[in-house]
Design a protein around this nucleic acid. Structure first.
Length: 943
RNA sequence: GCCGAGGUACCCGAGUGGUCAAAGGGGGUGGAUUCAAGCUCCACUGCGCAACGCUUCACAGGUUCGAAUCCUGUCCUCGGCACCA
């Protein structure tokens, strides 16, 4: 039996004993348990850096509380953990220290696993996944081959984003502001053959799916930004003197078609060459093209100067037959839409500027206001308007969507275009010129081309005979890896040395977890269908675009390969907020760890030398700014449960959380207070009293409140109930004379369950200390059900007393000033019956849904008016009752409308009230002595 | 410029028409307990006051019997997108 004693403080080091007990009992392993609903709780698996940091701790504390709650609530919970262990940092470290990425990774995994276990997270470690395990990555290769068969994977010689620091290409999404997302290096454009996945085929599904999943609004908005859906029309313009070619343009504003005065092509547009070779404009065009070719899309976006080159050629307007000049523009992006734009200077500012610069006509075809006079434009009018100046009948006067529709109808009818949708998202470039990733299973044969590695030769393993001191891809340094025979013709060939983007690893690991030990298949369809989709997914907002889009895509792609039936991987997503901390710096600007700083009266100095320290902004904890707190030292000093309690109570899961040392000590204090509580019942007696019924009812009420909060992931609110409010309830019980040991025992047993999601070690210590031999973690908590009317009455009565005391105390403080000494006795005057009747009539009036204003008219018909002066009643209603009637809570209303007798309650609690107010005597009266007495608020006359 | 999230008391933070002078925590003040400190418990923590008043939830208006909450406008903070046709 655990030794619980009030004098002893919470023992952080015995937490490991319970961790071992959980592991030994297999409490967190799950399987198909018949009759239990499933719950899949998941956190984004981490990259195994050397140490667990506070961000991890927060993320997993949230997930663990949810998982533990669901187990308690009777679910079969899948809660696995693993490591996203492929990737650049290990390879870079290998280059630096001359080790192998595998050794570094395995070492890190060992360290961080021990730290995660020390936090008491309830993972089923038997399902652990590691991306760099060939048993895992072989399936990346297998999927790649299936997608290749489906035409979902293709190879293209393309200009791509090259990160000169990582020595590898990057996907579009991995280029932020023209820089590599990890290295921060300015990205260059290179032309190399690369592997792509056709994620664009799924753009519409990825867009539509957002309606069916429960993601935070800002994440949905981020994803929509990335997908970049534009609705409009693709329109073909014939070229004068060239019947074989058509210039296709995409526009979101078909309603401006009659305002087109020129076309602009991207410099790399295939037709540009055809139109310009051999013309006087050729040189100008080719230099513009060369200039633009080396720029990323981002740099093009940054172009200040809009440059154009005329072609001397004309296109034919499909609806009017007008001749319109064709230009080349440096701002047109070849890879978006069709790489050609119909330019409408009157209604697009960029075209307007261009037209002014090159003296191209501007045709105003949309009126800003209906029937307004049309003037020359000083700038483009880009809003929706009424069509005007249409050279064809049937268009003028149409507005907005109607106008667009009418134009699309016309071009469709005349076979020169159609309504269409364009996307900003591009195909996913997955080739990386790096070692520490999944080898792409392709063999390049001189005669057969790129040949897939046959399934029975999978996995293509990463070779060990590589050197990490070479420039470029270490895979190319392997003497054995590249040599392979062509699977098709048998000729000596070369293996592909690109590896896959590591986002592929994280795009399906959640599927693998469900059937993690399957050696035959990536997973059994029935098993995936049984568990998926993930009911609660928790991770950082930084993955809102890449990981969360790729995973959604991959899930749909595998579904279409017939591997499972799931449409969306994550039903509900929670992005936990950042953990922040003040930054500290020396005067020369070098960052200093918080633990090295002493703060007194807001002035900071370095502990070691006393030199002054500047307190900087509160920012996200980061190694580079050194504003970090190492979880390990907190666990060592205060235990995992203190850290968990602090994290859950300091802020809502989605909110930013500022680290505070005071917060930790305050959590520690509360934990210690709770720790000793069960022991205290040993000094209780066996008396039963009326307050016993209250404690039981209160606990049931608390359990219900707590469950409700846990159901909607309001962990902070739930912890407030389980770790603070119930303790105060217990105090009240004791204050009111409660002293029943048996009741206390069952009270603590139930309460222990509520403690367990947030502070599982403490909960087990309680459970054990109360004489139970089993593990709390393996138990479920039955639903309490709704409170009975009897229980509600008991609770209401006590609420009334508490409210009354609060009211009486307030009056007492003022009375004291008048009497000149603390009051010694009090007369409590309950309001007259008619006031109560009036209140009840008024309440019933508004409860029935009537407007409160109409009640005054009913007053003269009330029975109470027979005894009372109507004027007095009306005055009370207007002045005091009307404002008050809405201030009564549901509880108050119930009490008021119910059978509670105020005088009787006071009399029954007379002694208690006297001692609380420090009075020697108390009497209760119902008369007209005090006009101020109101229902629920008796007058208190002190003397 | 566009989109999204916000602005609540000394601090953190809950609160989306009346239960709000506004939960909870921290900090502060007073009291009880203690030889004492810590812990714990109780009370107070906008102003006024023998209750019924006044002022307050970024700012300014509006709707309503009633607004922290709804509407309009303004200011500010954070995040994302941005010559995407």
């Amino acid at each position: 039996m655990e030794c619980l004693s009030m004098s002893e403080s919470y023992p952080p080091h015995s937490e490991t004993k319970w961790q071992k007990a959980w592991t030994d009992s297999g409490a967190f392993q799950q399987g198909k348990r018949s009759g239990r609903p499933t719950f899949y709780c998941l956190e984004m698996y981490p990259y195994p850096s050397g140490k667990m940091h506070m961000g991890h701790v927060r993320n997993y504390t949230i997930g663990d509380s949810i998982a533990r709650y669901r187990r308690l609530a009777g679910f079969d919970v899948l809660y696995p953990m693993g490591f996203d262990s492929f990737g650049m940092p290990a390879e870079n470290a290998a280059k630096e220290i001359g080790a192998h990425p595998r050794e570094i990774t395995d070492g890190n995994i060992k360290t961080i696993t021990a730290q995660l276990q020390r936090m008491g997270f309830s993972y089923d470690w038997s399902r652990r996944i590691m991306s760099h395990d060939e048993k895992y990555y072989r399936w990346n290769q297998w999927f790649f081959l299936r997608m290749l068969e489906q035409g979902l994977v293709y190879r293209k010689h393309a200009a791509v984003n090259w990160d000169p620091v990582e020595q590898s290409v990057l996907a579009n999404e991995q280029v932020i502001d023209g820089k590599g997302w990890r290295s921060g290096a300015v990205v260059e454009q290179r032309e190399i053959p690369q592997w792509f996945i056709r994620i664009t085929d799924y753009a519409q599904q990825l867009w539509d799916g957002l309606d069916d999943i429960d993601y935070p609004e800002h994440v949905k908005s981020l994803q929509k930004d990335w997908l970049g859906r534009s609705e409009g029309a693709t329109i073909g313009f014939a070229i004068e003197g060239d019947t074989n070619s058509v210039i296709e343009v995409f526009t979101t504003r078909p309603d401006t078609i009659f305002g087109v005065t020129f076309l602009t092509l991207a410099p790399e547009h295939p037709l540009a060459e055809k139109l310009l070779i051999g013309t006087e404009f050729e040189d100008e065009w080719s230099s513009l093209r060369d200039e633009v070719r080396v720029m990323s899309d981002f740099d093009r976006g940054m172009l200040k100067e809009k440059k154009g080159v005329a072609t001397g050629r004309y296109a034919i307007h499909p609806l009017t037959g007008d001749k319109i000049p064709i230009w080349i523009g440096n701002f047109v992006i070849a890879s978006y839409g069709t790489g050609a734009v119909m330019a409408v200077p009157a209604h697009d500012q960029r075209d307007f500027d261009f037209a002014k610069e090159y003296e191209i006509p501007i045709h105003n075809v949309l009126a800003e206001k209906q029937d307004a006079e049309v003037k020359d434009l000083e700038k483009a009018f880009e809003g929706h308007g009424w069509m005007i100046n249409s050279p064809r009948t049937g268009f003028d006067g149409l507005f907005g969507e109607d106008a667009k529709r009418a134009v699309i109808d016309a071009i469709e009818k005349e076979n020169c275009g159609k309504g269409s949708i364009q996307w900003k998202i591009r195909d996913w470039l997955i080739s990386r010129q790096r070692y520490w990733g999944t080898p792409i299973p392709i063999i390049h044969c001189e005669s057969c081309g790129a040949v897939p590695v046959p399934d029975d030769q999978l996995p293509v393993k990463l070779p060990d005979d590589v050197s990490f001191s070479v420039q470029g891809n270490p895979l190319e340094s392997s003497p054995t890896f590249q040599e392979a025979d062509c699977p098709s013709c048998g000729k000596a060939s070369k293996r592909e040395t690109d590896t896959m983007d590591t986002f592929i690893d994280s795009s399906w690991y959640f599927l693998r977890y469900t059937d993690a030990l399957n050696d035959e298949k990536c997973f059994e369809p029935e098993v995936v269908n049984h568990w998926m989709n993930v009911d609660f997914y928790c991770g950082g907002i930084e993955h809102a675009q890449m990981h969360l889009i790729y995973s959604r895509f991959w899930t749909k792609a595998l579904r279409d390969l017939g591997l499972h039936d799931i449409d969306e991987p994550f039903q509900s997503l929670l992005c936990q907020g950042m953990v922040t901390h003040a930054t500290f710096a020396k005067e020369d600007g070098t960052w200093v760890l918080p633990t090295d700083v002493n703060i007194e009266n807001g002035v900071a100095s370095l502990k070691s030398t006393g030199e002054p320290i500047i307190i900087g902004r509160v920012e996200k904890m980061s190694k580079s700014k050194k504003n970090v707190v190492d979880p390990a030292s907190i666990i060592e000093n205060y235990g995992a449960d203190t850290l968990r309690l602090f994290i859950l109570f300091a802020a809502q899961p989605v909110a930013e959380m500022e680290w505070s040392d005071q917060g930790i000590t305050s959590a520690w204090r509360q934990l210690n207070l709770l720790y000793g509580l069960p022991q205290s019942i040993e000094s209780w007696g066996t008396d039963t009293s009326e307050i016993d019924a209250w404690l039981s009812a209160r606990l049931s009420q608390r359990v219900n409140q707590w469950r409700e909060l846990m159901e909607c992931n309001d962990l902070r609110g739930a912890v407030e109930i389980s770790h603070f409010e119930i303790q105060k309830d217990l105090n009240w019980y004791r204050r009111r004379g409660g002293n029943n040991r048996d009741l206390g025992h069952s009270f603590f047993e139930t309460w222990a369950h509520l403690l367990s999601p947030a502070t599982p070690h403490l909960a087990e210590m309680w459970w054990n200390g109360l004489g139970n031999g089993d593990l709390l973690a393996a138990r479920t908590l039955q639903e309490t059900g709704e409170l009975s009317t009897g229980q509600i009455a008991v609770l209401d009565r006590e609420t009334w007393i508490r409210n009354f005391l609060e009211h009486a105390r307030r009056v007492s403080r003022i009375a004291e000033k008048h009497i000149g000494k603390p009051p010694n006795s009090a007369r409590i005057v309950i309001c007259e019956e008619w006031k109560r009747d009036l209140a009840i009539a008024g309440l019933n009036h508004i409860i029935s849904g009537e407007n409160v204003k109409s009640f005054a008219a009913n007053i003269s018909n009330l029975k109470l008016v027979e005894q009372q002066d109507l004027g007095q009643v009306m005055a009370l209603w207007g002045k005091r009752m009307l404002p008050q009637i809405f201030k009564w809570s549901d509880e108050d209303r119930r009490i008021l409308l119910g059978a509670l007798n105020e005088a009787e309650v006071i009399s029954a609690a007379k002694e208690f009230i006297c001692s609380e107010l420090g009075l020697s005597s108390l009497e209760v009266g119902i008369d007209e002595e005090s006009k101020s007495a109101m229902p629920m608020a008796p007058a208190v006359i002190y003397s």
